[in-house]
């Protein structure tokens, strides 16, 4: 009896250790953001919230934050719509080049982001010469690039969701007189809501955290939050940057909680 008790304690401890290992950096960042020191030194001399006070003064961080938010939300919406449409085509129809299309849609996952970024940059730059007006840097080309890297996630998750919908449900709807559109709206949509939410979250987070592709496409006056952070740590590393990161973590965690309220994240992943 004591043996099984010990082994149960042991396995719980092990799980706790793994969990701690994964989340430790996050808690470190939050902890450091409250350090009083000008430089990150252990142990801290004391604690304060003055790095958070500075957030308000550093206007460029706030601007970058809202710019990122704008790009990511728009990229998420476009990527969800395109992802849904292509997933419907892939799961519901047989056509020539279907396999190729699927591979093509997922390919940004395989190529290193920095390569994709450079490729998109060169493409836009060449197009600029050809068209005769500026494409880089612009809000739209940045959003377009973010759609490219988030599309694999929405396609993957939504088509997985669609594959899980029993085809006889759709047939039952049609049999009872529903049109294709009505079947989609009343039967398919409610069934894939969890995968749509998951796809949205993934798309948003990948866009919001992206550094490599944005790096090529932003202007000095309009940068995303990750780039603003990178710029800052080039010059100095202090707890301020931890405060910025903490805010970012809270935003994303908040989004997850909202999503959980709507669909229950355990159903999503």
């Amino acid at each position: 009896m004591s043996q099984s008790y010990l082994s149960r304690i042991g396995s719980k401890l092990f799980i706790l250790l793994i969990f701690g290992f994964i989340t430790l950096p996050v808690f470190m960042v939050i902890w450091i953001s409250f350090f009083k020191n000008q430089l990150i030194v252990f142990p801290p001399k004391g604690y304060s919230t003055h790095w958070y006070m500075q957030l308000a003064d550093q206007g460029n961080f706030a601007m970058a934050f809202f710019f990122s938010l704008e790009v990511s939300l728009l990229a998420m919406i476009i990527s969800l719509v395109l992802g849904l449409l292509s997933s419907l085509a892939i799961t519901h129809y047989e056509f020539r080049g279907k396999q190729t299309l699927q591979t093509f849609l997922l390919s940004p996952l395989v190529v290193p982001a920095i390569i994709t970024g450079i490729a998109i940059y060169i493409f836009l730059f060449k197009s600029e010469n050809w068209l005769g007006f500026n494409l880089v840097p612009s809000f739209w080309s940045l959003t377009f690039a973010h759609v490219i890297i988030t599309l694999p996630w929405t396609v993957r998750l939504i088509s997985a969701g669609l594959q899980g919908v029993n085809r006889s449900l759709e047939e039952a709807a049609v049999d009872l007189g529903a049109s294709k559109l009505q079947t989609f709206w009343y039967v398919i949509m409610p069934s894939i809501r969890p995968s749509l939410v998951a796809a949205g979250i993934f798309a948003f987070i990948f866009s919001f955290n992206n550094l490599e592709i944005s790096l090529m496409l932003v202007s000095p006056r309009q940068t995303t939050l990750p780039i603003e952070i990178l710029n800052y740590v080039f010059w100095k590393v202090d707890p301020f940057i931890a405060a910025v990161s903490t805010v970012q973590i809270i935003v994303i965690a908040g989004l997850m909680l909202i999503a959980d309220r709507f669909v229950g994240l355990s159903k999503v992943f």
Binding site: N166, S168, L169, E171, A172
Partner: peptide, 11 residues
Amino acid sequence: ALVFQNYALFP
């Protein structure tokens, strides 16, 4: 009107 083998009720 078809009655399906797996009933196909909308969950």
